[in-house]
Design a protein around this nucleic acid. Structure first.
Lengths: 183, 183
DNA sequence: ATTTAATAATAGCGAGTCGAAACTATTGCA
DNA sequence: TGCAATAGTTTCGACTCGCTATTATTAAAT
């Protein structure tokens, strides 16, 4: 009945949705890339906040990620911290002003919230399947939550990472890790 | 159980999916915006291929759309035709080379095609709901298929548009129209 | 203990997107 | 006839994007 293939239709809907949402973001203080980077940093654990990790998560190059992070730092939304252990690496932490920006719900957020529970449930499942397939295809890291990782061991409070060999606070086990591996 | 709200999770999945797909597009001959514009032109009817229509569909400004279309014309992927009736307006038609580019399936297309039928069905429904809600919110045109419009009247062959008062070929009734209004 | 190689981040380049505002050329209306 | 609305373009400044050096620093191989 449809003239478009199901695939093209879904692709077009995703693209339109993103453009509709992006059009609203351009009216705000941050462009879509800057917002995505800031949002990632706010959810990533302290081992996953380097420019290279942001680049990997956003599926872009280190050069591009570096520029976007510098732009956020210029606006005092994130703070740069050089590592003592490895003097080459840098970690960015979200500053108070950055956290404030993330609190404002976007138009897309509001629209999603009005979806029936059942719809948002199947939507999440479908999108997860697509993202996972794309990650696999491109040989990208999964960037899942610490506590869902195969290196994670539960503790009475928080947890322990067998890979990095560190104790983890309850908050940290709910953060995104670049070393995440599915069970 | 999840630390992220359902809304934020869905938003992040859509954003990641778009970025993953965009990263592949940058390796091709067209950037994401140019590809989206070309794809739209290939599906829109002859009354909906002006710069202003492209701008509206892509949720951007006329200025930006104009630049993207000029870039596509420079690459000989689309042809510019000035209207006789209204000397201000322009219509862009996709050139043979442009059509060839659209035939190549993207990585995201392939991934979508591997989804179970049921999953892609509910995914389409969910995304449609979100897009429609965003369009309503922003007071944007819907850009639906001609034959699903309230101004459309079926004929033995093709159809007739009560708004534009023109006869339509079978192909045209399956194209996107900027005047589309839901029944 | 040195060289050499890998890694982390950045700078600079050219093409292009993005909104906003200024600017033509038409067309429609009063 | 005159002015406002409309269609499209141009220019601007900020920025993204991939790419290719380039600079530190660290790791591995001699």
């Amino acid at each position: 009945m449809n003239d478009l293939s199901e695939a093209q239709q879904i692709r077009d809907l995703i693209d339109r949705l993103t453009r509709l949402s992006a059009a609203e973001e351009w009216n705000g203080p941050l462009n879509p890339s800057q917002f995505a980077a800031l949002s990632y940093l706010a959810r990533a654990n302290r081992y996953s906040r380097a420019p290279s990790h942001v680049a990997d998560y956003l599926a872009t190059t280190r050069g591009t990620a570096s520029q976007t992070l510098k732009a956020l730092a210029r606006k005092s939304l994130i703070d740069e911290t050089r590592s003592d252990a490895d003097k080459r690496s840098i970690r960015y932490d979200v500053a108070p002003d950055g956290l404030d920006l993330l609190k404002v719900p976007s138009g897309l957020d509001e629209v999603i919230n009005e979806l029936p529970n059942e719809t948002s449930f199947v939507l999440t499942a479908g999108l997860k399947a697509l993202v996972n397939a794309m990650l696999l295809r491109r040989d990208n890291r999964s960037f899942g939550l610490c506590r869902t990782c195969k290196h994670h061991q539960g503790r009475e409070k928080g947890g322990y990472c067998k890979l990095l060999e560190v104790e983890l606070s309850p908050v940290e086990t709910g953060q995104i890790c670049h070393e995440h591996a599915a069970t």
